[in-house]
Simulated scan of single mutants.
Amino acid sequence: MSFTPLHDRVLVRLIEGDEKTSGGLIIPDTAKEKPQQGEIVAVGAGAKDEKGKRIAMDVTAGDKILFGKWSGTEIKIDGEELMIMKESDILGIMS
Rank of each mutant, 00 (worst) to 15 (best):
L11S: 06
I27M: 04
G72E: 03
T4N: 14
Q37Y: 04
V59G: 01
V12H: 01
L25Y: 08
L66I: 10
I27L: 06
A42H: 03
D58M: 07
M85V: 05
T30R: 15
T4Y: 13
L91Y: 08
D29E: 15
L11C: 06
P35V: 01
A45V: 09
G23R: 13
S22G: 10
V41R: 00
G24H: 05
G68S: 09
S22C: 09
D49K: 03
I40R: 01
M1N: 13
T21Y: 00
G46A: 04
G46T: 06
S88E: 14
A56P: 11
D78W: 12
G79K: 11
W70T: 14
D49N: 04
A31T: 10
E39W: 02
I40H: 02
D49C: 03
S71M: 04
A42R: 07
Q37S: 04
I93G: 02
L82S: 09
P35D: 00
E33R: 13
M94H: 08
E80R: 07
K53M: 05
M57N: 05
I55R: 00
S2I: 15
P28Y: 09
M57V: 11
K34N: 06
E87K: 10
M85I: 05
R9S: 11
G24L: 06
K64F: 01
I27Y: 04
D89Y: 13
G23P: 10
K48V: 08
D49T: 02
I84L: 11
M83T: 10
L11A: 05
K20H: 12
E81C: 07
L82V: 09
S22Q: 11
E87H: 10
D18Y: 08
E74N: 10
K34W: 01
S2C: 13
T30F: 15
T30L: 13
V41Q: 03
M1K: 15
E80Q: 13
D63T: 00
T30K: 14
V59S: 03
